[in-house]
Amino acid sequence: MDNKLNILIYIKHFDLTPFTYNEILYLSKHHNVKVLCENVEIDKRFSMDYIIQFRTETKSLKCKINNFLIQHDLRLSYKSSKISRQFNDIIAQFKPDIIQCHYGDDALIFLDNINTLTIPIVIMFHGYDASAWLRNSTYVKKYKKYLNKPNIYAICCSENMKNRLALKGFSKEKITVVYYGTDINFYKREEYPDNKEFIFSQISVFRTKKGLEYTLHAFNRYLDKFQNKNFKLILAGDGELKGKIHELAHKLELSNFVEFPGWLNQQQAKELLEKTNVFVHHSITNKDGDMEGIPNVIIEAMAMELPVISTFHSGIPELVENTINGILIKEKDIEGYANAIYDIQKFSYLKENREKILERFELNQRNNDVNDIILTLTKNHEKTSNQ
């Protein structure tokens, strides 16, 4: 079998999210790739010639009723004759050797609307789909059924995530862990600044699970407890909680210590990490159960040799070893967080953090590992088909 495969990649919203976009770019350079998506917001690195867009019904009464049933864990079905025709026509024309689906919840739209196939299908779990959705009993039941099929497999981004899925009855033998990775050539420290004030930073979307509220309360507690005002906290990003976080900083009288530069592009993010002393990322579990996978930005910060303050949350301890790569604390532990802010200032830049990224969280390694899995699955399928 030729190592260049026909790979159909299903991703409902195809955008610049690093851990999906970089992987799809890599696969497109080594195989014949078609991306099946509903929405697309990408740059010129990926040709629109390889994109197939589909349409779903979102405003019909039938769709609204179905969404209500899904939200209340009464039924979980995305079957649609219109979508089914689109998907099966694409499969018949492209003749994929393997299909990759990103995000477990979105993947059900695809799985529910294709004819029975024997070629390998790989589901990529990333976070919400392997945490909050696991509270939905119909979702769990459906995936237990799908993963029992001999041609359907799963890849997730941490051992913690794999164990969560296994605890719900997902076939552990069908799940492979492949860690996210970052571009180590881009995220490489070029200088070691001697800052007049100690700089902490976080780069993230302003959402609840990013723990920004607790970060502000912890720095407020740190000020009260240690009376050290020689620091700057830079919270970069944008999102639904931006206004609330700005108001909280003002209410806690932290305006002189906190900066909000807004959304940063990749180059600007690197420049911020370059001047930072410590990276903070207080990930928490949402009320609906939503959890991180492993935040890519922590990988980037560690590639830049930064010590990290984060939490014992999801797969983060697999990346950040407590007291070695930084300090981990319990979620929402403001007192512990304040103490960590004080203690971590004894750390310097950590070359061992970059070494860990080189060994286990490097982008090319991630892409090669996913590619090897795809090649192995298709090769095994071909052997079985020829018997």
Rank of each mutant, 00 (worst) to 15 (best):
S348Q: 12
K209W: 00
E305W: 02
E352G: 08
R164M: 14
N67R: 10
L241I: 06
G104R: 00
Q71R: 12
L108A: 10
V122G: 05
E331Q: 14
Y143K: 01
N386V: 08
I245D: 00
K287C: 14
L108E: 03
F206V: 11
G315I: 01
A130W: 00
S77A: 14
L254I: 08
H313W: 01
L147K: 03
L167M: 11
Q227A: 15
N353Q: 14
K210Y: 06
M161W: 00
M161D: 01
L375W: 12
I7R: 06
P96V: 05
Q268H: 05
E247D: 11
I99D: 00
E197S: 15
H72A: 14
E305N: 04
L254E: 09
H13F: 15
A218I: 14
L264R: 03
E253C: 14
Y10Q: 06
G315R: 04
I357R: 01
Y192N: 10
T20Q: 12
T116A: 14
E240T: 13
H250S: 12
P307F: 04
Y179E: 11
S314Y: 00
I373A: 13
N380R: 13
E259V: 04
K29P: 01
D89F: 08
L36K: 02
G127K: 01
N296S: 15
N160Q: 09
D224E: 15
V33N: 11
L273D: 00
I114H: 10
H217G: 08
N148A: 08
L117R: 10
T311Q: 03
E191N: 15
I203Y: 02
I90V: 08
